[in-house]
Design a protein around this nucleic acid. Structure first.
Lengths: 135, 135
DNA sequence: TTATCTGCAAACATTTTGCAGCGAG
DNA sequence: CTCGCTGCAAAATGTTTGCAGATAA
C-alpha cells in the first residue's frame, strides 16, 4: 500500500459511519448517502467498506441471509462479538473472554488447529419489543 | 403439509447424505449425484436440502463466503454446534451447554429477547495439518 | 503529471421461482 | 385422476470486476 487517497466519496462513507451506531449493509449505506445528496456509486461503497473492514477500522458480520453488515469499531483491533437487534440494528459489543477459553479448549480436545470462530447474537431489543411499529 | 412424496430424486439425495459424513454444499451434492449417474436437477437439490433442513433432518451452516452447507444430523432435533475442518470438512459436533448459558446471560443482561445465536468453528484437523497435499 | 479512485455496466455466484409436464399415491 | 414434484430457464440477490475517464497529491 503506497498511498491511500482521501476522496469525497470515502470521506462521506466514513462520516456516515461515524454518526451511525448500528450495523448497516453496503446497500443501506449507499442509499443513505444518495438520499442525503452525496452521490456515490454502489461499487465504491462496497470497495470502501471492504477496505475499511480489511484495515480493521470496521467490524463486519454476516446476517443469516448472507448479507454483510458493517459498523465503526468501538475499539479497533480489539476482539469481540455482537448482540444485534434484528429489528433496529442496535448493537451491544460482547467481550468474549469465557467464549475464547471455551473455543480453545474445544479445539485442543479434538486436535484442531488454526481455529477461527464465529459467534453472533441476534435478538429483539427492549424498545423494539414493546413498540409494534415496523422498523 | 398434507403429503410428502417419495421420489427417486429425494431418495437419491437422502441416500447420498447418509453415506457422507461431511458438510456439503447443494452444488456439491448435485455434482456428486449427477456424477454417479443419478440425474437430478440443481433446483430440486436446493429444494430438497432446504426442506430436509427445515424438517430438522439436516444440520446446516454458512461458510464465510456465504455458501450453505448441509449434512445429516447425528441427533435430529438436538441443539449443537460444529467444529469443521476447512480443508477436508471433517466435523465434530459440539454440545454447547456452557455456551447456551452464556448466551442466555448476555441476552438477559442487555434486555434482548427472542435470541438466536450462531456459533461455528472452522479449523484444520490433525490429519490435514500433517499432510501437505491439497484437499 | 500520474497513479489511484470512481462510476457504470457487465460479470459472478448462489439461490429462488414460474410454469408446463411428469408421476406417486 | 390429482396434486405434489421435477426440470428448465429466467429472475433475484448480493457482491465483484473491467475499463475509460476523473482527480488527489
Amino acid at each position: 500500500m503506497i498511498g491511500q487517497r482521501v476522496t469525497r466519496q470515502r470521506t462521506a462513507v466514513a462520516a456516515l459511519l461515524d454518526e451511525l451506531d448500528e450495523f448497516r449493509s453496503a446497500q443501506q449505506v449507499h442509499a443513505l448517502l444518495v438520499g442525503r445528496g452525496e452521490p456515490v456509486g454502489l461499487a465504491t461503497v462496497y470497495r470502501t467498506l471492504g477496505a475499511m473492514a480489511e484495515a480493521g477500522e470496521l467490524d463486519s458480520l454476516r446476517t443469516d441471509s448472507g448479507e454483510s453488515l458493517y459498523r465503526r469499531c468501538e475499539r479497533p483491533g480489539h476482539h469481540h462479538h455482537h448482540l444485534v437487534c434484528r429489528r433496529c440494528g442496535r448493537t451491544v459489543e460482547i467481550q468474549g473472554t469465557h467464549l475464547e477459553a471455551l473455543v480453545d479448549s474445544i479445539a485442543a480436545e479434538h486436535g484442531y488447529t488454526d481455529i477461527n470462530h464465529t459467534f453472533e447474537l441476534f435478538g429483539t431489543c427492549s424498545p423494539c419489543a414493546t413498540s409494534s411499529s415496523p422498523p
